[in-house]
């Protein structure tokens, strides 16, 4: 916990020093910018691929990602029911660049969604996965710098999301048949 607090202090120490840096952190940490960018990558991935096989792999990645994100959110909800961790600003003097979220700090919801999208896509497409991991890391880092999460919240989100992606893609093989049925149906409408 001491390391967690020390890392938080270091990251949050970047906030409040420069208006430009604060604005950059706010752009990165808000609920709309990077999350929408990641979903747009997924949207692009659906139509991407030089061959039918490559596109089918990308489309399976998109469908698997949706399920993995739903599962990860369920796990986060369950965690929140069992364990409530107050936000860093609740008991400490922090530089807050965002509004006061009232839900549990652990695990980070935004990091869970971001890393879950990245991990799911990475298992199918390393290039797009790397781009999504980069965006997720920026989001996670900005959330800590902005004062709404401890680094351990991000780590918790990373673990939950990686587990969800691994379970859905590597273990739930029955989903593949559903994905193929959906993709084949959409192909009839020239949408896959």
């Amino acid at each position: 916990m001491a390391i967690d607090w020390a890392l938080f202090q270091f990251a949050n120490g970047l906030a409040g020093r420069s208006p430009i840096l604060d604005r950059i952190i706010q752009i990165l940490m808000n609920d709309y910018a990077l999350t929408t960018a990641m979903v747009l990558v997924l949207f692009a991935l659906w139509f991407s691929g030089s061959s039918l096989e490559a596109r089918e792999r990308n489309q399976r990645a998109v469908l698997s990602t949706i399920v993995a994100v739903l599962l990860a959110n369920l796990i986060v909800k369950a965690c929140n029911l069992i364990f409530y961790r107050p936000r860093p600003f609740a008991y400490h003097e922090v530089t807050l660049l965002f509004y006061h979220p009232s839900d549990s700090s652990f695990p980070s919801n935004a990091a869970t969604v971001g890393f879950c999208i990245a991990a799911s896509v990475w298992l199918f497409n390393h290039k797009a996965g790397f781009l999504l991991y980069t965006l997720s890391c920026l989001l996670a880092l900005a959330r800590v710098c902005g004062g709404v999460h401890y680094p351990s919240d991000i780590l918790g989100g990373l673990l939950v999301s990686t587990f969800s992606a691994w379970l859905v893609i590597r273990k739930w093989h029955f989903l593949d048949r559903w994905w193929m049925a959906i993709i084949h149906w959409l192909r009839r409408w020239l949408l896959a």
């Binding site: 808000n30 709309y32 929408t36 509004y99 979220p101």
Partner: peptide, 12 residues
């Protein structure tokens, strides 16, 4: 944007 807005499910 820096105030509470739609939930994640609503954004989706």
């Amino acid at each position: 944007i820096l105030t509470p807005g739609p939930a994640g499910s609503e954004l989706a």
